Amino acid sequence: MNITTVAILSNPKAGKGSAEETANWLGNALSEKGISFQTFQLNWPTHFNGFSDIWIIGGDGTLNYFINKYPNCQLPLALFKCGTGNDFAWRLYGNKDNSGIFDQVMQAPVQKIDAGKINQYWYLNCLGIGFDGEIIRFMQTIRFLGGHLGYLLAVILKVFSFQEKQFQISTDTETWHQCFLLVIANNSSRSGGGFFVTPNASFQDGKLDLLICGKLNLLQRLRYLPVLQKGKHLHLPFVTHRLVKEVNILLEQETDIQIDGELISAKNIQISVVPDKFLFRF
Rank of each mutant, 00 (worst) to 15 (best):
Y224F: 11
F196W: 13
R190A: 00
P199T: 13
N187Q: 02
G192P: 09
Y224W: 09
L236R: 13
A201C: 14
Y224A: 02
T198K: 10
V244K: 04
Q220V: 06
N187W: 00
H233R: 15
P199N: 14
L228C: 03
L211I: 07
L208S: 04
F195L: 15
L218V: 05
L218R: 10
V197T: 14
K245A: 08
V247G: 01
N187I: 00
L216I: 10
Q204I: 04
N186I: 02
Q220D: 08
G192L: 08
K207D: 00
H235V: 06
G194I: 09
L218I: 12
E246D: 10
L236H: 15
L228Q: 01
S189A: 09
C213G: 02
L234A: 13
E246S: 13
G192S: 12
G214R: 04
K245V: 06
K215P: 09
H241K: 06
S202A: 13
L216Y: 11
L219W: 15
L236T: 15
G231A: 03
D205T: 05
F238P: 01
K215N: 11
N200P: 14
V244L: 04
R242V: 04
K245N: 12
C213N: 01
R190H: 00
T240P: 00
L236P: 13
V197A: 12
L228Y: 03
L218Y: 10
G231P: 03
L234S: 12
C213T: 05
A185I: 03
N186W: 03
N186R: 02
F196V: 05
L216Q: 13
I212F: 12
T198F: 10
F196L: 09
L225T: 12
G193L: 11
N187D: 03
G194P: 08
R242S: 06
V239S: 00
G231D: 03
G192N: 10
N186C: 04
L208Y: 07
F238G: 02
Q220H: 09
K207W: 00
G214Y: 05
K215W: 08
F196D: 09
N187A: 02
N200Y: 14
F195A: 15
V227R: 12
P199F: 15
R221D: 09
R221L: 07
V247D: 02
H241S: 08
N248G: 05
L225N: 06
L234G: 08
L210Y: 01
T198H: 12
H235S: 10
R242W: 06
L210Q: 01
E246Q: 15
Q204L: 02
C213V: 07
D209R: 00
V227D: 11
Y224K: 03
Q229P: 05
V247S: 01
